[in-house]
Simulated assay, not measured.
Amino acid sequence: MPELPEVETVRRGLAPVLVGRRVTDLEARRPDLRFPLPEKFRERLVGQQIVALDRRAKYLITALSGGEDLVMHLGMTGRFTILRDGVRETPGEYAHDSGANPVHDHVVLHLSDGTRIVYNDPRRFGFVMMMAHAEREAHALFRNLGVEPLGNQLTADYLASRGRGKKTNLKSFLMDQRIVAGLGNIYASEALYRAGLSPNRSASSLADRRGAPADRATRLVASIKQVLQHAIDAGGSTLRDYRNVNGASGAFQKSFAVYDRADSICLKPGCGGKIRRTLHAGRASFHCPRCQR
């Protein structure tokens, strides 16, 4: 499943192509993906100008001139292909280059400059929805989402207040989308490592006895923002066949300090600890028990 940096990489690849263009046609080649396609999908899209392409958590949000939003989720194998001037570009692809098979081209968007945007999804775990822009924050997809990890609302005070009194472990706490939106398994593990915090530590330890943020909360916020920004700059992580807009593999996996490195020696100079794999909320976690406390 793509995480926030991969989705943000796709957004940055699509935005220059989509924003400012008008939708001239829509091909919906099947009635559903994970969920049924929106009612009157073609009628609601054709003629609309694309005003903006945003991201909230792991959702891509296309703002339309008529006041509706087209919300897209890539699922496990969804990817977009840009077709223009006879050239194919891929702002995001997953699952062993599966998007090369046109039988899985389920939705095609035609733009006013002649560009086509093709959504390909072999396993069809992705989905598209349409909703009024004014009602989006109240929609079930968005109303319970926490703060954006790269936004100004993620602060040490915020984490301390949300963690105060909670016995849940830090790894599960960070992956709770009601607390931090879009932070997934890989980057939670990497952020905890950079902050020197064990995933087994309780979330309540982010606050002191008075409820003020402890130093570890400050370190964790800085590490979350740093690891996500580094991953975005690297074009995401290639776990299967993720690629960026130029078709090049995302390179952040080459910088993994702990993720998928079980039984390897910790990379921190002088540590000498061995990376351990554990489970938190059913997901694999990786940490160094010697330098993460």
Rank of each mutant, 00 (worst) to 15 (best):
E8V: 00
V10T: 14
R12L: 14
A15G: 05
P16V: 02
V17K: 06
V17E: 09
L18N: 00
R21D: 09
R21T: 03
R22A: 13
V23W: 03
E27L: 14
A28W: 06
F35M: 11
P36D: 09
E39T: 12
R42H: 11
R44Q: 15
V46Y: 09
G47R: 06
I50T: 01
I50P: 03
A52G: 08
A57Y: 02
Y59L: 12
L60S: 05
I61M: 11
A63R: 13
A63Q: 12
D69L: 14
G75A: 06
F80Y: 15
F80L: 05
L83F: 13
R84L: 15
G86I: 06
G86A: 13
G86T: 09
E89S: 14
T90I: 15
P91E: 02
G92S: 05
A95E: 11
S98P: 04
G99Q: 07
N101Y: 09
V108F: 09
S112F: 10
G114T: 07
T115M: 09
V118C: 06
Y119D: 01
P122K: 07
M130F: 10
A134F: 11
H139F: 12
A140V: 13
G151T: 05
N152W: 10
Q153G: 15
Q153W: 14
D157G: 12
Y158F: 15
L159A: 03
R162S: 09
R164W: 14
T168R: 12
S172T: 11
S172G: 10
F173C: 03
V180C: 01
G182H: 04
L183K: 00
N185H: 11
E190I: 03
A191V: 06
A191I: 07
P199G: 02
N200F: 07
N200W: 06
R210E: 15
G211C: 12
D215T: 08
A217E: 03
T218N: 07
I224D: 01
L228I: 04
I232G: 01
D233T: 03
A234F: 04
G235T: 03
G236F: 04
N244M: 10
N246R: 11
G250A: 08
A251N: 08
F252V: 04
F256N: 02
Y259D: 02
Y259G: 01
R261P: 00
S264Y: 05
I265H: 03
I265E: 11
I265Q: 07
L267V: 08
K268P: 00
I275E: 00
I275M: 01
H280I: 02
A281R: 07
G282T: 00
G282D: 09
C288E: 01
P289T: 00
P289H: 08
C291P: 04
Q292T: 01
